[in-house]
Structures are given as structure tokens and as C-alpha cells.
């Protein structure tokens, strides 16, 4: 391509890109390094390598309770988001109904809307209908906010799918129900897995919406948050490192799945985030 002819003569741009990467990764590296630092968080240079903080972390039963809470929340948020994101993507792809444009905007809004607004308005709803704040409200909040992610992911999968396949199935005598399970669903399977991974990770890390909807039982990020107010300890570095490693692993799997199904996976991923990404296809 034309780019390759120039790739060798852009030392300045290359250096700038390197600087950008250093900026993106510097805090992450610091965080990880200090999780092994014997003399606690901060100070320079780090001194005394140790696994103490990880030992302390694994012995911290109250923290692991919150991990379990987070996993439960994330798993159920995935179920809600996929359960509604799948029909929502199908509806946006193939149904016409009054208010469709508004529906699309509403579904996608939490993708870009600051978490505080989603969290607050749901808080008022739950208080209004007399629901006690608990993990259930958190699950409903995460599920609702993340339908947007499920919808964009699955919609991208639908766009890529050859519509004639479903027609062929109907043509061969399978009704709509059979066609969905035998043709549409297998075609979307990778999109669904990718969406589930991303939603799981995002839910596991979510803090802005959770902040308003949490009851007595904390999720992991909220537990970390409340501990931060009491002061920072390398134990938090250690759990943060583990969270980070888990996120990186799921994100990389998610990315691989997407690129495997999408012709130009990177661009698809990117445009899926744009609010207008579902325009023009209706």
C-alpha cells in the first residue's frame, strides 16, 4: 500500500507514537512493579521484591467475597445484556416500527452517556418502585447499560452475515424458528461469545453505575474504592494487577474472535463504538 513506501521515513512520528504508548503503559507498569515492592506503595527506587502482598491478598476473605459478588453480577449482566441485545440487534437489522430511530438512540445512549446519569436515573426508578438496593439492582443496572455493547457487537455480526442464508433455509422448508436456531444463531455464535467476554469484563470493572445502585454487599471495584479512602496499600496494587491481567486476557480473546469473524475486524470494532454506527443500515 502507499503507506509502506513512507513507513521508513517518519522517525518523528514514530517517536511520537512511542511516547503515546509510554504514556498509556507507564502507570500500568508502575502499578504492577509496586505490587511486588517490599517497602510499600510509592518511594523510589522500589526496594525489596516480595510476594507478601499477594499472600496477604489471597488470605483476605472479605475481599474474595466481593470478587464472588462481582462474578455473579457480571454473569447475570451478560445474560440480561445478551438476552435483550440479541433481539434488539435483530429488530434494528430487520424490523421497521414507529420510533425505531429513537429506540436505537436510547439503546446505544449508555455507551456514551457518563455512568453517573445512568446510575442516578436508575436509582430514582428503583427507589420510586420501592426496590431495596442490593446486588439485584446492580445487576439490572449493569445489564441495562451494557445492552448497548451487546447490540453493537451482534449487529456487526448480523451485517456481516449473508441474508440469503436465511432465505435459503426458509426456501428449503425450515420455518422461522428452526431457521433462527440452525442458521442465524450459529452464524452469530462468535459475535455472541465476543460480546459476552466484553460485557463480562466491563461489568467486572464497572464503578460509576454501581456506585449509586449498590446495597450492603460490595462488588470488587466498590470494595477497592472504599478501601482507597482509608489509604493506599500494596495489596490494592496486587489485586489491581490481577484484575488487569484478567482484563487483558479477555480483551485479547475478544479481539481475536472479532478479527476472526470480521473481514476488517479492527475497523468494525472501532466504528461499532460510534453513535452513528447503526445508521444507514435500517
Amino acid at each position: 500500500m502507499s503507506g509502506t513506501s513512507q513507513s521508513s521515513r517518519s522517525p518523528f512520528l514514530g517517536a511520537y507514537a512511542l511516547f503515546a504508548y509510554l504514556f498509556l503503559y507507564f502507570p500500568i507498569v508502575v502499578l504492577i512493579v509496586y505490587s511486588f515492592n517490599g517497602s510499600g506503595v510509592g518511594g523510589f527506587p522500589p526496594s525489596g521484591w516480595t510476594l507478601d502482598w499477594y499472600r496477604q491478598l489471597f488470605a483476605d476473605a472479605s475481599l474474595w467475597d466481593t470478587v464472588l459478588n462481582s462474578v455473579i453480577v457480571a454473569a447475570l449482566a451478560v445474560a440480561i445484556a445478551l438476552g435483550l441485545g440479541l433481539p434488539a440487534a435483530l429488530a434494528l437489522d430487520r424490523a421497521q416500527f414507529p420510533g425505531k430511530a429513537l429506540f436505537r438512540r436510547l439503546v446505544l445512549l449508555p455507551l456514551i452517556l457518563p455512568g453517573i446519569i445512568t446510575g442516578l436515573s436508575l436509582l430514582m426508578l428503583f427507589v420510586g418502585v420501592g426496590m431495596k438496593l442490593s446486588l439485584v439492582t446492580v445487576i439490572l443496572g449493569h445489564g441495562t447499560a451494557l445492552i448497548s455493547v451487546a447490540t453493537t457487537e451482534i449487529f456487526a455480526g448480523l451485517q456481516k452475515m449473508d441474508r440469503a442464508q436465511e432465505e435459503a433455509s426458509l426456501d428449503l422448508g425450515a420455518n422461522h424458528w428452526k431457521t433462527f436456531w440452525r442458521i442465524t444463531f450459529p452464524n452469530l455464535r462468535v459475535s455472541l461469545i465476543a460480546a459476552a467476554l466484553l460485557i463480562f469484563t466491563l461489568s467486572l470493572d464497572e464503578i460509576a453505575v454501581t456506585f449509586f445502585l449498590i446495597g450492603r454487599d460490595n462488588t470488587l471495584p466498590l470494595e477497592i474504592w472504599s478501601r482507597l479512602r482509608r489509604g493506599i496499600t500494596p495489596e490494592i496494587n496486587a489485586i489491581s494487577t490481577l484484575i488487569l491481567l484478567f482484563s487483558i486476557a479477555t480483551i485479547l480473546i475478544w479481539y481475536r474472535l472479532r478479527t476472526r469473524t470480521q473481514l476488517a475486524g479492527d475497523v468494525q470494532t472501532a466504528t461499532a463504538l460510534l453513535p452513528s454506527s447503526l445508521e444507514g443500515e435500517t
Binding site: 500500568i28 466484553l198 466491563l202 470493572d205 464503578i207 484484575i243 482484563s247 485479547l252 479481539y255
Partner: peptide, 23 residues
């Protein structure tokens, strides 16, 4: 290089905010 940008995009907000606090 693209994946290297995607990772911090989705990776924990709290963790990254906390990292700056320690820095």
C-alpha cells in the same frame, strides 16, 4: 499496535485511576 491501544481502552478504569494516584 492496535491491540496495544485496545487493551487500555477496555481495561479497568479504577485500576488506571488508582495507578495515577500512586504515581
Amino acid at each position: 499496535l492496535y491491540q496495544l491501544v485496545i487493551i487500555p481502552l477496555w481495561a479497568s478504569y479504577l485500576v488506571r485511576g488508582y495507578a495515577w494516584k500512586t504515581i
